[in-house]
Design a protein around this nucleic acid. Structure first.
Lengths: 210, 210, 210, 210
DNA sequence: GGATAACCGAGACGGTACGTCGTGTCTTATT
DNA sequence: AATAAGACACGACGTACCGTCTCGGTTATCC
């Protein structure tokens, strides 16, 4: 058996770190400046001072480049923020479920409105809507970890008796994030702290035991 | 004064109905077959047996063509379905709010899984995510009418004392449609009757008075 | 039978004369300035202010473009030179064979040294050496007509008794042109009026009857 | 003073003989198989199992590689043919000038038709046509030695009174080789023993004294 | 009922970007 | 120090579409 000759993967050890970083920066900058559809691989290469082939060698598509650039951006932010590194990301657990979730959603609102995040995030989301494979990839890389935090927090609340036992946290968390996601993705409504606070109140009222 | 030579809007009266229909069909077929990004104006024109200019004359972009084609598709379906035409679309009001909404959501699930709808719908959604102007246009053309139906039904339920008075229906309805929309758009989870039924139960529990 | 779908030849009637001329000029200029190998289709297109596709639509290769440009150049020169148009090209027949051929060869020497002709001519010759199909094409388009003139003149000389009857003019003419061609093509020796005069003398001595 | 850091000529003593031979073979094979323009340095390196740098270190261009490969091929053939090595190449001198030259030209015809020689020879010739420096290099390496043999033989014939005293052998020899060269290079006519025999007859008739 | 102006099909045009290939330079690890 | 291997910046390839722009050739009113 000849293990398919499918491209002869390049040698990762020799990869130019400098080029990779330059490509990330160029990609994010361009998406921010001219939008995803008018961001081209040629443009990224030119701006990064890199040959096109260097991009094609390591990534399969514009969406791939952007996904990694975006992940890298997240890691950077995380590194800058939580210098101490303990508990890099988690929903706080003060015992007050409503307050904890409101706080997290407010942070999410801030993030959704931060132009550094917004343009690439929309680009990826759009790509994922239309290309199932990409969509699943993006979802599992970008959203799944976050979703898991909600599941954990809700389960903890369930154990504390603040959420009815029969509730499936995997579904319940969607009451917090899906309405916000839809408003953001599809411009079906404005986004604000007030709005997310209301969301939490309405939803928890239904989730709490009587 | 020369009343601006800007574009000389074409004469709608002389428009070729045959070409318009051919373009709709070609556009929908291509999006279904090769996906939105690989659907091109040239391709639509060729398949419709139409000059490119005929498309550029009447529509401003690929997204525009597809939006109208999609709306047309909806009208057709409606015409076929409700021959009588009175009350073309409304959420039933049997007095049982949960049952009524479950029924509508089940129909939505069916529609989201119908490949005739899915491909163009995704295409439009993706375009809307990345292009705010298009997004608002699509939302107001495709979703707003639907949303209004939920608002109406919820208000009626509120009057009937089945929903707490303080609740804003514009927000409450998102508990029903946003989670489903997100699962569909972003592949964050499977879609089924069971799932939408559960959604309705969890949500109404919170919306109902005690 | 479906007569092969081999490219769907474009509509010659709609061809842009302006672009064609611009392409000829750009091609000849570039070959003259930077040489054939560094003349690129992209470069020609850019210099001519023309899309690449316009070149690819009408010509199959760089060599094709240059051949036509070169033929066009020849026609132009001819048109400028022989305004009267009678006898556009022929070897003079004064009765003195040696003098007639010397005169023509001197003109050829001038042409071979004219940089306007030299660069494209070499380019075509080189292409023809390496690509048999192109070679035959170039030879029959560029050299055959010329060769025929020699054949005619030699036959006329034969009838006048200045060349032995058994001689094949098709071969004899090579004594005049092949040595010159080789010196020019392969840099095997210098080119001058003296040289071509000598050639004629040596050769005619052998061709003349005793 | 720092004796210019220009290129740091590589150390010939350490050169890998095995690589050199492999490169020659690969180059000749590729030119024969796919033609000169589609023979690439990368292709040669890959086929020879050699790093690209090894080629760039020792040769300046594709043409250089091929020229040496071709010369090497000639030496090999010579070595195989004349095992004794004395008088590797010379035009025979039987006293019959016509017969001697006819014999040599017939051998040349054979060689020109041998595909092992033809492809690389054409490649080099074409390169030389378009690049004057390469042309002079190729001519002096590949043709000059041969030409000298004709000069010698003609001078000997001159001394024997078979060629008129005033004749310049450097020019006279072109009557034998240039027509053949042109037919071969430019496809202006077929090549055969008959043809070269006729050439010799026509030419010698003019060169011989009366 | 003939003139005339629009739309229509077709598709050539100047462009931009695509994804691939080859160049010549450079770096790394091996011999 | 030369080598096999191959990543790199660069430039050109030939193709696909873009949106604009003529071309005839139907229509479809308006005189």
């Amino acid at each position: 058996m000849v293990t398919k000759p499918a491209k002869a993967a390049p040698d990762t050890a020799r990869r130019s770190e400098k080029s990779r970083r330059a490509i990330y920066e160029a990609a994010l900058a361009l998406v921010g400046e001219v939008g995803y559809p008018r961001t081209t691989i040629e443009g990224i290469a030119a701006r990064a001072g890199v040959g096109k082939q260097t991009i094609y060698r390591w990534w399969g598509s514009k969406a791939d480049v952007l996904l990694e650039a975006f992940l890298d951006l997240g890691e950077q932010s995380a590194r800058e923020a939580g210098a101490s590194d303990q508990e890099p990301y988690a929903i706080p657990d003060t015992g007050d479920l409503a307050a904890d979730i409101k706080a997290v959603l407010r942070a999410t609102v801030d993030q959704l409105k931060d132009p550094r995040f917004e343009a690439p995030a929309r680009a990826l989301a759009a790509e994922g809507v239309v290309d199932e494979e990409a969509g699943r990839r993006f979802t599992s890389a970008l959203m799944e970890p976050n979703i898991q935090l909600y599941v954990d927090r809700l389960r903890s609340a369930q154990e504390a008796g603040q959420v009815r036992p029969g509730i499936d946290p995997r579904i319940a968390l969607e009451f917090f994030i899906s309405p916000l996601a839809q408003r953001w993705l599809q411009y079906t409504g404005p986004i604000s702290y007030d709005y997310t606070d209301t969301l939490v109140e309405y939803a928890l009222y239904g989730l709490a035991p009587r």
